[in-house]
Nucleic acid binder design. Structure first.
Lengths: 147, 147
DNA sequence: CCATATAGTCAATATGGTTGACTATGTGGG
DNA sequence: CCCACATAGTCAACCATATTGACTATATGG
């Protein structure tokens, strides 16, 4: 039993995933904070990756991201309040708005991507480039076709 | 920019970690639910791995797990209510209680460990045993010595 | 034996999400 | 043409999970 408990504590995959995610998130946010980026957290990345230059509806983001439209609506509001996104009326549908990324949003994205890559690089150094690449590929494969 | 956005969407490490963790958690909980296990969720695993046969104090779990003692206290209460844990007065300190795992708790643990291993096995099959092992080892290494 | 630290609880608050009800607008079939 | 029904988005209520602060009871070292 002791054996079982300690094996859960040390190598339980679920907890490792959780801890790594928190660590990664925290480090990215710290870097962004030191750039003076405010009013944004990583939860906003539920929305951001779905925004493109053609404009997208809140409902569409909600559907694709798998969260409620109310949650997406709130995230968009916050991002608009901080000038990272812009919304325009959808000419094709008076009920809808289209979400676009702003200039400030693009700048923020460049920073976020750079920090993300730096932290990945740091981690890659810890475990070796090759094994790190294997790890990421394995993760992607699992996500690609798991029930 | 499109390139950047889509690269974030598809391979951003933070989101992969988050999604994998949720997927793993959900699957374990589904399995446990189909065993008739109730009143327990994976957040209780913040507490469970620290319980051993010698008994442990709530405060000590909180310290080691890095969460508030209030949060741990609530988790323990729930686990005790559902008979997965037992608490006894600490003979050495009248302020304190010691947390032990119950018989029901041991049975639950066996199931949880089995399901965890099965899901890991399923994932290992998807990416290959060798790469899966590399992935887990890499994750452990990163957790071991990251700031 | 008192000053201070510690174990644990209760309450208030923060955060981040959900579901439900609603308004306004769009759309397809009689 | 228009009505029934679907859809975009908002507002409000609620829920889950954690935090911090204030408190009580007990321990302990100078």
């Amino acid at each position: 039993m002791e054996q079982s408990l300690s094996s859960i504590r040390d190598t339980h995959l679920g907890r490792m995933l959780l801890k790594l995610e928190r660590q990664f998130t925290r480090q990215v946010l710290e870097k962004l904070a030191s750039d003076g980026i405010t009013g944004i957290t990583l939860r906003h990345f539920v929305v951001i990756p779905y925004v493109d230059d053609k404009g997208i509806r809140a409902t569409e983001i909600a559907r694709q991201a798998g969260v409620s439209k109310q949650a997406v609506s709130k995230l968009i509001d916050e991002l608009v309040d901080n000038d990272y996104l812009e919304i325009k009326a959808d000419p094709a549908d008076k009920r809808a708005s289209l979400v676009f990324i702003s200039e400030k949003g693009r700048e923020f994205l460049q920073l976020a991507i750079a920090h993300t890559k730096n932290i990945e690089k740091k981690w890659a150094t810890k475990v070796g480039e090759k094994d790190f690449a294997t790890m990421k590929l394995a993760m992607r494969k699992i996500l690609l076709n798991d029930d």
